[in-house]
Design a protein around this nucleic acid. Structure first.
Lengths: 179, 179
DNA sequence: ACCTGAACACCGTTCAAGT
DNA sequence: ACCTGAACACCGTTCAAGT
């Protein structure tokens, strides 16, 4: 590893830490100029490190999302319950992590970004729980519901949890076909 | 009515029409400068007519939302179905009307804005359907779910309809308490 | 190779000055 | 009374110039 590469890594790391703090404070729409300013670099340098806002946001949340995705592997003898619990945790986590919900709502650029990682986890859980699910329900549906709710309840994870539980269980007591 | 007041009304009406067109094209975050420019007025005048972005957006959508709220009064001998159908229509309408979902997601300023009107309609339907609903489910819950989904699916009313149906019916086939 | 200052084309908001 | 041009303090993006 060259000295330049080590330098770059240090700057990169520092930039990410500052960016995470600013996004936690100002949300997904935080000023990129403010991030560069607080990191002590030029805004042009920020743009070279991260070609888009989404690229920056995605890297900020990558560790937390990866940790959450691992929890999908915990064994559970009731796969339906395991799926519901994980989706509930994802929704509450995204609602309490400023900027994450908006990041997940953006179309992903690569297979290895936050959304791709969560999609893989959701797919595994959905497959295991397939027999307990209403026919036609996909991992994509569950992620869309979760992201929609966490986006709408940013900063209020209790409400997020309540709404995703409601959506997973259904609003009505009646027996019906959804279509 | 003075000539000045008539003038103002004409300008106001023209401004609203232009604003509606620009928002339909550019979304809820449309440039207020662009709206003023296309309406042929100064941006300062726009700000005097509408003290906030929300005030402008709300007035743009008022007619459509009022029409939708009236449909809650149509009689139905199955109040649970009536509620579900109306919430589904609201969600699809908001998803297909650019800028409306974001407007509904904003905390309301008055009792007579779009959100207040929809809240009244949802409250009526929810009360009629109370015995068919899971205990504790409120009109606010249903509006929050609808707005969350339509915000996340702007421009795709078919997906919006599919997701709100799923949320109303429940994802799982199992009998459970949502706790 | 890497970074930066400066320029560019935008914003929203406000207010003195005009009519 | 009403409207406007202009000013102000910001943006994101790009690039020639520096080291």
């Amino acid at each position: 590893m060259s000295a330049q590469r080590a330098d770059w890594q240090r700057n990169h790391q520092r930039l990410l830490e500052v960016a995470a703090a600013v996004v936690a404070r100002d949300g997904a729409g935080a000023s990129l100029e403010a991030i560069a300013r607080e990191a002590g670099i030029g805004s042009a340098t920020l743009h070279r490190h991260f070609p888009s806002r989404h690229a920056l946001l995605d890297e900020i949340f990558l560790d937390g999302v990866t940790a959450l995705s691992r929890r999908a592997d915990e064994p559970d003898d009731e796969p339906g319950r395991a799926l519901r619990r994980w989706v509930e945790e994802l929704t509450a986590y995204a609602a309490s992590t400023r900027g994450l919900a908006a990041t997940l709502a953006t179309e992903r650029a690569s297979e290895l970004d936050c959304r791709g990682i969560l999609f893989d986890a959701a797919t595994t859980l959905t497959r295991r729980a397939a027999t307990t699910l209403r026919p036609g329900v996909t991992a994509t549906d569950l992620l869309r519901l979760s992201t929609a709710i966490s986006t709408a309840t940013e900063g209020d994870p209790d409400t997020a949890r309540r709404l995703i539980r409601l959506a997973l269980a259904g609003v009505s007591l009646e027996e019906r076909e959804p279509s």
